[in-house]
Each structure stands twice: as C-alpha cells, then as structure tokens.
Amino acid sequence: MIALHGFAASNYYNLVKHVLLYKELPFQEKLVYGGSEALLAISPAGKVPVITTLEGLHISESSVICDYLEDTYTSKPLYPEQPAQRAHVRQIMKIAELYFELPSRRLLPYAFSGTPVPESVAVEVRQVLNRGITALSRLCQFSPWVAGKQFSMADIYLYHVNTIVSSMGVSQLNWDVLAEVAGMKQWNESMSQSAIAQSVEADRRANMPEFIRQLKAKS
C-alpha cells in the first residue's frame, strides 16, 4: 500500500491526498512534520509531502508525486490525451504555484505570529499576485472546469493552492484575491462541495491546532 507522509494542515499534502482519493488508490497516512529527522530520512529537502511507493521508493515534491501517480495508475486520468492540452493543464498548475501560492506563503509567518506584514513585503506580494491574476484570467476557462470540459489535475492543484491564497489574501492584505479572476470563486465553491474536498478539509481543520503547537515549539 502507498504511504503518504506529511500532515493535513499542508495544502501540498492535501493536493496529493486529493489525487489518491480521486483515483481510489489504497494508501496509509503517516504523520510527520517538516524539518524532522524522520522526514529527512525520506525527503532530500526535508519537505512534505512524500509518498513511499509499493516498491519502497520515496518520492517528494507534490507535482512530481502527482505525475508519478498519473503515469502509474492510469484509471480516472487527470491529464488530457493530447500533448498540447496536457501542456495547458501543466501551465495553469505552474503559474498557480509560482504566482499565487508562493507569494501568498510569504505571509504565513506574519499570520502565525500575529505581527503586521511590513509594507514592503505587502507591496511585493501584491505585485506577484497581480501577475498571477492576469495570467490565470487568460488561461482558466471554468467551463465548468479550470481547463475546460474535462476535470483535470489543474482543478485539484489550483483548489488546494487557493486554500493559502484566499486565507492569506483576506487576513493579511484585506484582499479577496480569488474574486479578481472571473469565475474562480464560483468554481472554487463548487470544488469545495465534493465529498473528497470536504473530507480533506475536515482533516486539515482537525490537524491545524497540533500544527500550530509544532510551530510554536520551534520558535
């Protein structure tokens, strides 16, 4: 059985978990936090998530894990058949990571510590997010899914990226970032109603207090 290592408060962990659940693959969850010795033993950079395959191979980095799962378990495919369409899906995923998720993640330390975001940081984050808004507005279709008629990896990836983008935008910048992309809020709400999304979200909320304690213990 596949083992999924990490913790449910992590959106990267949750997007891999979402893929596993969508493909109906049996897996076990192994609780481990970032930077721990247990994680460093299986993850070169000490990051979550990590999966251990049936053959005992450890694979890290969420996008790499997702591609491995797609290539290995071909039922319920999450990428289109045509190369150009697959590239379109991956382009959305990459832009969501670089220009939505990563700048929003810069705000996490201020959210957890309760300290104000420095104006210089807020300006930089807004600039990058605006770049992402422009790009995703051009690429996303929401008709009804992110890349068009077919549910794809881009839907799962962007949905879990938006967990960070939405919460940090509202709480730290007083900015409803998702509302800036036409159709995104409605699509995001629709995604949140699925049984898989609700199950993953319940686990995320349940794990959050322990995750916060872990952060405070390190500080």
Results as ranks from 00 to 15, higher is better:
residue 164 I to C: 11
residue 112 F to M: 11
residue 25 L to P: 06
residue 158 L to I: 02
residue 108 L to K: 04
residue 180 E to K: 12
residue 14 N to Y: 13
residue 6 G to K: 03
residue 167 S to C: 11
residue 171 S to D: 08
residue 148 G to H: 15
residue 197 A to H: 09
residue 18 H to L: 01
residue 125 V to E: 09
residue 164 I to H: 06
residue 69 L to S: 05
residue 29 E to G: 08
residue 153 M to E: 05
residue 102 L to A: 01
residue 142 F to R: 15
residue 39 L to S: 09
residue 118 P to A: 00
residue 79 Y to I: 07
residue 180 E to F: 06
residue 150 Q to Y: 08
residue 92 I to S: 05
residue 8 A to C: 10
residue 193 Q to M: 13
residue 214 Q to F: 13
residue 150 Q to K: 14
residue 14 N to R: 11
residue 46 G to N: 06
residue 86 R to D: 04
residue 31 L to F: 02
residue 68 Y to N: 05
residue 25 L to V: 08
residue 65 I to C: 02
residue 162 N to Y: 15
residue 100 F to A: 06
residue 51 I to K: 06
residue 168 M to V: 11
residue 139 L to T: 01
residue 162 N to A: 14
residue 142 F to C: 04
residue 46 G to Y: 03
residue 128 V to N: 07
residue 209 P to G: 14
residue 2 I to Q: 00
residue 131 R to C: 12
residue 149 K to R: 15
residue 96 A to R: 11
residue 42 I to E: 02
residue 54 L to T: 10
residue 61 E to M: 11
residue 28 Q to H: 10
residue 94 K to Y: 00
residue 219 S to T: 09
residue 56 G to F: 07
residue 128 V to I: 09
residue 12 Y to I: 01
residue 163 T to S: 07
residue 31 L to W: 00
residue 105 R to C: 01
residue 75 S to E: 11
residue 106 R to T: 01
residue 149 K to G: 01
residue 57 L to D: 15
residue 44 P to H: 14
residue 187 W to N: 06
residue 4 L to S: 04
residue 63 S to P: 00
residue 157 Y to D: 08
residue 40 L to N: 11
residue 207 N to I: 06
residue 118 P to Y: 11
residue 88 H to Y: 10
residue 69 L to P: 01
residue 170 V to M: 14
residue 101 E to W: 09
residue 218 K to P: 14
residue 172 Q to L: 14
residue 103 P to F: 13
residue 133 I to T: 07
residue 113 S to L: 09
residue 202 A to K: 02
residue 10 S to F: 03
residue 108 L to V: 15
residue 172 Q to K: 13
residue 143 S to A: 12
residue 35 G to S: 08
residue 60 S to G: 02
residue 32 V to W: 00
residue 188 N to E: 14
residue 181 V to E: 15
residue 24 E to F: 01
residue 134 T to M: 12
residue 175 W to L: 10
residue 215 L to C: 15
residue 170 V to W: 07
